[in-house]
Nucleic acid binder design. Structure first.
Lengths: 333, 333
DNA sequence: CTGTTAGCGCTTTCAT
DNA sequence: ATGAAAGCGCTAACAG
């Protein structure tokens, strides 16, 4: 059986109160007492029971990070930053995956709301509307990561997707490309990411006097395979595009591979720009131009926002914009 | 304030015991009572307090997954499988990163041993010896993932690294390569991964009557950048190798990129084989030949082993070998 | 400065 | 079939 405060107290000939004080480093303890307690503590190899402590204090120091899939590089890198920063703040991170499936997301929210030890939740949703998420907010602080999926009463941390996409496309235009295709996601209401990026794309096209509507290829997800398939289709078009704006780096990677297979040279025949700036993109052939969100900044802002909300559950929702940057590499010529 | 069992009991005019029974789906409850309790439950929107429940039961249903870095694709993919399988078993996963730093690993073990919620720990260590880890095993079940770092009393799940490496190199030899270089890690005692893979490399070389000792390039870690630097050096050698066996796919990716920059054609001038078979490797140019460990198999075996150990803390340590497979693609010609 | 004690919310033994 | 009550191990309010 585990050693408890009582055991230590008994051994040291003091009360549990005193032991607790020593364990928690309180002031005002007689040096002699402290020494005696310390000795007992070590001799018995006491380890505090965190569950009991949390029950008492009503806080666990655990936050939950919900994201589509941890094996997708962007989310892996984001999770890394979150774990990193949270750890430095004395918080541990639990991870759950939604698979990007709206049903599963709702279910997760329900179970999180119903029963959980987590102090708060960071939710990186793909398909869910803010309204769906609001169900959780009554129970536990929740911070939304990524796209703002709707006018909502929740805290939200992310980059300005429309502007980022606009800059990426403006860059292609600057490089002399005119037949630019956007690639990725559904562009529909359920997929805020693609909606915003598409909007930025259109904005840039319009600003340059190009046709904003024409060239958009949907994909069922943001993975390499999907992009490869889409590119195969795109290359059948009567007028071939001269540039590709992919809504994720993984899509871009799939596109690069397929373009290579089809003998289309990048960037000469086709410029390619990605989004997320995952580690692998720096090393692809050709190296990928991409929008780099400040992932560490997102993580820090999100964890901080959550911590703030723990102290002030009633404060009004904050909208936090994190910087991004377009990293130009070989693929955009 | 949160709704407790007492509140519900009072409302329904029964005892907390009865409410608890209803909540936990026990048998032998008068239908009328059950209905009344159900109504109260819903009306008050009761949510069980998991912390209290855990305190009482002595189990949290949380396991901790410790790995070097979640943003490294292999670990991201492994974590994905772990989260996936654990979730299906009703377990939540906490993630902590060691950064591959032995000091940090020890510190993590200490803090895990000292105070923690987790029922058990899955530890994917790079640099730690089994002995270091044993400190935890007294407190909480621990399963080692990846390399068996030492003769140890702990459960261990992984693939046969020596044999996997041997097969990878044998494949290169079969393809007619003779000057094969191994690349990655330190090969030293603190890095079991590279030690085993190096051993497999040497075994294959020896079996083919080739010089097993000559060609080994150390790297400080398993990342792309390090491989690029190593390859730059390797290309200076008087007799250039005709094949590269990289101890991770990320290393291989860095190598591919550098070889491309230096005008070395893969696989014609240099064949490349990786290890881990991360998603990106299927799409690189050229597509990478790699050793694919059964990640889902590892995850399942590891979680199961942990769960078993919870029930039977005294059972003797199990050594679980998970299958792997060499996936041949373009890079090995 | 330190001892006593009342819970945190839940499960579960012991009654009935 | 259900109630009463004893804790799980800890912190903190209340004494002294």
């Amino acid at each position: 059986m585990a050693v408890t405060l009582r055991d230590v107290a008994q051994k040291a000939g003091v009360s549990v109160r005193t032991v607790s004080n020593v364990v928690n480093g309180f002031q005002h303890i007689a040096p002699a007492t402290r020494a005696r307690v310390q000795a007992a503590l070590e001799e018995l190899d006491y380890r505090p029971n965190l569950v009991a402590r949390s029950l008492r204090q009503g806080r666990t120091g655990i936050i939950m990070l919900v994201l589509p899939e941890i094996n997708v590089s962007y989310f892996g890198e984001l999770a890394h930053e979150v774990v990193d920063y949270a750890t430095s703040a004395g918080i541990t991170v639990q991870i759950d995956e939604s698979g990007g499936d709206p049903e599963r997301e709702k279910q997760l929210i329900t179970s999180l709301a119903q029963a959980s030890w987590v102090d708060g939740v960071l939710f990186s949703s793909l398909g869910l509307r803010g309204v769906d998420l609001a169900g959780l907010s009554g129970t536990r602080p929740l911070v939304l990561l990524g796209e703002r999926t709707a006018r909502t009463t929740l805290d939200h941390v992310g980059i300005d997707n429309v502007e980022a996409a606009r800059q990426a496309v403006a860059h292609l235009i600057e490089r002399g490309r005119t037949r630019i295709a956007a690639l990725g996601g559904s562009g529909g209401a359920r997929d805020a990411t693609s909606r915003y990026r598409l909007k930025g794309f259109q904005k840039a096209m319009q600003a340059a006097g190009l046709d904003p509507a024409g060239l958009y290829l949907r994909t069922p997800d943001y993975r390499r395979t999907s992009a490869a398939a889409a590119v195969r289709e795109l290359l059948q078009w009567p007028e071939r595009p001269d540039a590709l704006f992919c809504f994720s780096d993984e899509l871009a990677a799939g596109a690069l591979r397929e373009l290579h297979d089809q003998g289309v040279r990048v960037p000469r025949d086709m410029a390619v720009v990605g989004f997320d700036d995952i580690e692998a993109s720096r090393f692809s052939v050709p190296a990928l131009t991409s929008v780099r969100p400040d992932k560490a900044g997102i993580a820090k802002a999100a964890v901080d926002a959550l911590l703030n909300r723990l102290d002030d559950p009633q404060g009004k929702p904050r909208e936090i914009d994190v910087p991004f940057e377009l990293v130009v590499r070989e693929s955009s010529g």
